[in-house]
Design a protein around this nucleic acid. Structure first.
Lengths: 216, 216
DNA sequence: ACTTTATGTTTACTTTCTGTTTACCTCGAT
DNA sequence: ATCGAGGTAAACAGAAAGTAAACATAAAGT
């Protein structure tokens, strides 16, 4: 589990990082909240621990901005015991509120509780259960046609090797063996559509002059 | 929003019920935890507020039993401030921990936070109690014929695997084993009708060339 | 015993899906 | 700028799925 933290008290951050690190939870701390927001935009974490009492800006503002683009679980950690803060924080979309000082064990338990609820850890986005004929993408079942499913599975099993169109046509039952290589291109495009990565593919990459490669 | 509460302090229960009631949250309090469990088995609530310090039994035992048949969001409310209790509670599957005394406003905020979270994680709309022969869809009992019920249950138990028409005909008692696969199509259509997803199915999906799949 | 209702099945027809091809566009390396 | 490769919208045809209606039989009601 990989967790982002916004905490300006470096010492506290290090203590927590050490304790949680030894329990298999990697902490990435940001003392600059704007840098954190930028990172959260492009990288994926399992949760965010947010300190409210920041020097530059109210942590609640950060939360508000964050919620415009992410539904990552957020635990607010604050020395402010004002009930109004709690209520406001939870209304702004925080998932939990932990008053300082707290025991690292409790933070750990809450992190686990929250991510268990979401059932989501930032491991590989794509999981395939060939027996059940099911593809999960970001923990949701993908609804694929037979050709789409078989191509994705084939690339998955050969990941991260680049596979040629010809090899796909030869080995995929749902493809007519007399088909043009272009058929593959079209179906790849449709899979990308369902992965929502038609522009800027992250998993299903084309390898110029060779074919296609899947990154799990 | 309709919330169950297990709280033996009747006075406190009434205060909370009144406050939350005026904020559009209906509280159904049980002073008998076993009665509560029985009710939770058959009725649907949006959350449960659980007092740990009950006269007859440890609230954590209730939570453990509850988790065997329900994944309803649970907020533990307790005068016990022992950290071990918190950790244990969250590990047993509670979603939040609220130490007494607390402000009703905070309880309200947490209830909202939890159910909002629930909405995001698109948890299962369909619940099946095979023993009782009851299907709940979006917290309502569905009136199904035997064949409809059995097909839905079979798909449910094999979810999200795609099941062939032949497998269904073979395994569903209410279907004549000499029936055409088309029979299945028609019954599936009727189930969809009752799920109100005849157009644009979200749960009962057809998998072309294979059969049908249920997404819980 | 008789009638009505409910429910699974079949039929016949319509609609949708999906793999394929074509045509045109974009992008990147040289 | 050029050329080749990949991307994709659109059109198409055959296959699969959807479904309305009629039917047969079992179950329920009288």
């Amino acid at each position: 589990m990989r967790v982002a933290m916004i905490e300006d008290d470096i010492e506290l951050a290090e203590i927590l990082a050490e304790y949680l690190g030894s329990h298999n939870i990697d902490i990435v701390n940001f003392d600059d909240p704007y840098l954190a927001l930028a990172k959260l935009r492009v990288e994926s974490f399992d949760a965010l621990i947010l300190d409210l009492t920041l020097p530059q800006i109210d942590g609640l503002e950060i939360l508000k901005d964050l919620r415009k683009f992410s539904d990552i679980p957020v635990i607010i950690s604050s020395a402010r015991s004002d009930i109004a803060d709690k209520v406001l924080g939870l209304e702004l979309g925080a998932d939990d509120y932990l008053p300082k000082p707290y025991n690292p064990r409790e933070l750990e338990a809450r992190l686990k509780a929250i991510t268990r609820r979401k059932g989501k850890t930032a491991q590989s986005d794509i999981k395939i259960d060939r027996q059940k004929g099911v593809v999960y993408f970001k923990n949701r079942v993908l609804d694929l046609t037979p050709a789409e499913f078989e191509i994705l599975s084939y690339l998955y099993e050969n990941s991260p090797r680049a596979v040629s169109r010809e090899e796909l046509i030869r080995n995929i039952d749902s493809l007519n063996e007399n088909s043009t290589p272009k058929s593959v291109d079209v179906i790849i495009g449709r899979i990308r559509e369902k992965l929502r990565e038609r522009e800027n593919p992250k998993h299903l990459l084309s390898v110029r002059g060779v074919g296609y490669r899947l990154i799990r």
